[in-house]
Design a protein around this nucleic acid. Structure first.
Lengths: 236, 236
DNA sequence: GTCTATAACGAGATAGAC
DNA sequence: GTCTATCTCGTTATAGAC
């Protein structure tokens, strides 16, 4: 009977994957706003009510796609980081940023789903938070290693930011001081400004040869978060 | 007869404005993907075919909304710049960035229309370019003044970026050297990363007191583009 | 000339009966 | 799970009011 249960479980996983694949196809064609369970069911050759055994609602399907996208991006960033795990923090920072861009270029519609305009009428549940945090946590880890090693370049914060910076430090990385976490979070947001502009067409006729431009920009971001050395050696 | 023509022209302008107002309302409610001429007409109490006198197609209405949004943002940025026109480049840079954020917070759906996910099936025509360029040109102007005055801080570009950087300089601001235009364009993109993250909810539970955080970040962007002085005096 | 209304097309979504 | 009747949509041709 464990075989039967295993087969059933396997079938369920396969059908779930097929639903999400078809949903992703529609995402690419019509956008997240128009994602409809009916259309997915029609394309799969089943009736729409059958899908409710797998996803209780359209929003739950959307949530699953969002979590998948965040995890796909997170895995891409993490495995790129693993490759250069022995390098210095600056090289690792750059590797993670480049991996995020590469993933976005390879998955533009999923990128739009997670970092583009909010879907009208949809509010992301708390379930999405852990997946959404992966790249950010990776970047925090890089800066943390630098901070514990040779140190990072510091700069003063404005007086009206000290309270919020302390709160951010306590919430996000208690081992990093407020004046380190603030530029780090800013750089994290700015990274997606660069990626989004390329992906959504704002760089058309402005930046043509984008990879070296992006690399230059994330090197500057590394500098902004205190990763200042060109790093001749390897380990932190 | 100039009166008659004037009255007709005025009526036409008013109807056009009413159509766009209603369209913006629907944009806020359902998103750009679901903008429908029929729904706009219904809400205005006219029949859908009547709207074709004012906009040749749904996409043309979308284009008009996009151009309006860019111009509204551009005007907000330009008038904020005018207020501090006598201040130093660094103060003017910050003023423009703060104005862009303020406009985005006041017009989130129009922000999503111009800087969010592309609308499926819609391609922005070249008409949108001049309006879209306004904030960028304003920022170029600020850095240009600094460059002609006391100068801006410079830093070397990677070798594989020199050709593209030269092209960017020639196309965007021939009077600014390549190593100045590259960080400027990057900062321009990064600015919208900060705004987008706040607007689209990525800062939820990450950054709470956002104004001082944003100010700190754009001060760092000013530094990145070479505007390094805290500037005690006024004019460049 | 300038506009709005009517009616229709082909395509797609949706609700409910069975 | 299937079928049908009724909605939506963008868009056009046409007729008539001002």
């Amino acid at each position: 009977m464990s075989t039967a249960r295993g087969a059933r479980a396997r079938a369920r996983i396969e059908v779930t994957a097929a639903i999400k694949d078809e949903a992703r196809r529609q995402l690419a064609a019509d956008g997240a706003a128009k994602l409809s369970l009916r259309a997915v069911a029609r394309e799969l050759g089943v009736v729409s009510s059958a899908l409710y055994r797998y996803f209780p609602s359209r929003d739950d399907l959307l949530t699953a796609l969002i979590i998948d996208a965040y995890n796909s991006l997170g895995e891409a960033a993490e495995s790129a980081h693993t490759v250069v795990a022995e390098a210095g923090p600056r090289a690792r920072w750059i590797a993670v940023c480049l991996a995020a861009r590469r993933w976005a270029l390879a998955h533009p519609h999923e990128y739009a789903l997670i970092y583009g305009s909010p879907v009208p009428g949809y509010v992301a549940p708390q379930e999405t938070v852990p997946a959404a945090a992966r790249v950010g946590l990776l970047l925090i880890g890089v800066v943390r290693d630098a901070y514990r090693g040779k140190g990072v370049a510091r700069s003063a914060l404005a007086a009206d930011l000290t309270a919020e910076a302390r709160r951010m430090s306590a919430d996000l990385a208690p081992d990093l001081p407020p004046d380190v976490i603030v530029p780090l979070v800013a750089a994290w947001a700015q990274l997606y400004g660069l990626i989004g502009f390329e992906l959504f067409g704002q760089f058309n006729r402005v930046v043509e040869d984008r990879e070296p431009f992006f690399r230059q920009a994330v090197e500057r971001l590394a500098h902004d978060v205190g990763l200042v050395h060109p790093e001749p050696g390897t380990a932190a």
